[in-house]
Amino acid sequence: MKYALAVYGAASTGQSSLTALSFARALLVSGHEVMRVFFYQEGVHNATSLTSPPQDEQNLPEQWQRLIAEHDIDAVVCIAAALRRGVVSVDEAERYELSASNLREGYELSGLGQLLEAAVEADRLVTFGD
């Protein structure tokens, strides 16, 4: 089946980002298709490349990125939510004349329409919030 996942939590705000990641891995093991992961609200923080937790702690944004790259998952970060929270691509950093960009490779900044489109196209929509 085709699954769309909506991720609203950051590693630091609750457990939902980790739950979503574990669920996504289990979906792929079961042979399902993850048609899109949409990062919204605090979930946009999963797409920053600037997390650097201590060695003995897990780096969730890095783990997400690895899964997304390995399985070529369509990973979309809500552009309005991301700009509001300081997660920006090179293009957006230029457009808004910001001092740096931090969006990880493999993610696309795009509009909320990508979430709604996936919601109705997928066989299952699963929301992960804190």
Binding site: Y3, F23, A26, L27, V29, S30, H32, R124, L125, V126
Partner: peptide, 15 residues
């Protein structure tokens, strides 16, 4: 487990 979570989403029509 997480695999069981997946199975529950298969067995139901929506989440």
């Amino acid at each position: 487990d997480y695999q069981g979570f997946v199975e529950l989403t298969e067995a139901n029509d929506k989440v």
